[in-house]
Design a protein around this nucleic acid. Structure first.
Lengths: 116, 116
DNA sequence: CATTCATATGAATGATTGTTCATATTATAT
DNA sequence: ATATAATATGAACAATCATTCATATGAATG
């Protein structure tokens, strides 16, 4: 192994906080599932109740609830109750801007998606 | 289950392409691992060779190579050879702006991270 | 050309995770 | 109170995935 002591010295000087790294990876992991992305997309059109989401995405209610819980834990969605039904909606503006940012990367270059 | 036919009708009208959903989730999944985030952060300071990354992150060379391969497949990093060593760097401007976007969400609200 | 250095790759493994099934809440209505 | 509708939760299972170990490539050097 060749020498990098100088470089490493410099890098360790302004290393990012480990807690933030974990939070950040945790956040992106939530976006890293097709089902959750579909849910977020659906909610970008406006609030929806749980069973409407399930019907739209053709998945059963339990699976939807489980994923909504994950999304809520990371504050990507919020909900309100109206009688028996609970309506979910996007939590804040960040949520869709993160998706939009990723979208640009994905749609920008479409050649050899899984190449190499 | 109550009725949503009207809502669903409208939503299916402008549903996002399934292929794009999968690509997008795939992209975020790559960002959803602490090791890969650490690597991207490291590379944001400038290009580094594989063993420097490994030394910096205190993980062995093989693990680094495996993750670099994932990052490269998703065009988040690029590399160039110089003799025996191969230098990796961020692929384009998107990469860090995606991280920055996520960072804002993570650092904005720090109360009850894993609550509920 | 044999050796060494830097990196890549393949198989195996342990851990994580999305979905399903069954069951539990919570709220309305009769 | 019972029944029903809407949602949530817990356990179990299958699939995915990050890491490790061993080995392979590819380039320089003696």
């Amino acid at each position: 192994m060749h020498d990098h002591s100088a470089l490493l010295e410099k890098m360790r000087a302004h290393a990012p906080d480990e807690g933030n790294i974990l939070s950040l990876a945790g956040l992106f992991k939530v976006f890293g599932d097709p089902t959750r992305v579909r849910i977020l997309y659906a909610l970008s059109a406006g609030e929806m109740c749980v069973c409407a989401i399930g019907e739209y995405l053709e998945m059963d209610q339990s699976a939807v609830s489980h994923q909504l819980k994950v999304l809520k834990q990371h504050r990507l969605v919020k909900n309100r109750r109206e009688g028996k039904t609970i309506y979910y909606s996007l939590a804040d503006r960040h949520v869709f801007s993160i998706i939009t940012q990723g979208w640009e990367h994905v749609t920008e270059e479409t050649e050899n998606e899984a190449a190499e």
